[in-house]
Amino acid sequence: MISVQNVHKSFGDLEVLKGVSLDVPNGEVVSVIGGSGSGKSTLLYCINAIESINSGKILVNDIDVHSKATNKDKLRQKLGMVFQQFNAFPHMTVLENAALAPRIVKKMSRDEAMEIAKKELEHVGLGDKFDVYPTRMSGGQQQRLAIARALAMKPDFMLLDEVTSALDPELVGEVLETLRLLAEEGMTMICVTHEMGFARDVSDRVAYFHQGVIAEIGEARQVINEPQNELTQKFLSKVR
């Protein structure tokens, strides 16, 4: 379970998160929607301890993420993250990309790491690309590699930050399909997304972010189809 409790976060004078609370129980998929600069990415970064917080608390599997005593590198093994940028390691093959972290972070043997990497690559439909260099692949394939690379660490949670925003429209589908598969398998996910159809159909709940607060949160279909908050209505009418 991920539990975000009244988190405040500022960059200098700019307060980006103004008291955000969100509980995501295991197995749930929450989509986060909202305008540019509303703090969606920052929230994910705070959950992953890439950014610090000013006040409040974030618990991941009951571990206090921002406590000094927490080993953040160890914590991040439980939190897979995929970004808008593909971030494939260009000097490694697809297989090496996915096997690197299991090998050097989890100290698995080479064979063991390769085994897991292969399985996750097949999982996302890249079973025929093991020895290819990622720069030779389409954006959609690179993004699926990023997902497989995160999955190879056997995370309990996946944090996805607009993973389809940098893709050509015709490649969005294959990545969303992969995420849908993960959701069906019961992965706990927080997805920041601009894909309203995905948010509605794949997630359990949708949170609408507005200027650093969650303005509305509820059952996915209800928030997307019949938003209660005026701000959500305005936002949705603009993006549709």
Binding site: K74, M81, F83, N87, H91, A101, I104, A146, A150
Partner: peptide, 27 residues
């Protein structure tokens, strides 16, 4: 080597020095 690439490495649980050694230096 972009910040985002390094953040991606850190998000996999790699330490600062692992990221330097396996990602930033070779690239």
């Amino acid at each position: 080597v972009s910040q985002s690439m390094q953040t991606a490495a850190r998000s996999l649980g790699m330490t600062y020095w692992q990221t330097i050694y396996h990602i930033r230096f070779p690239i």
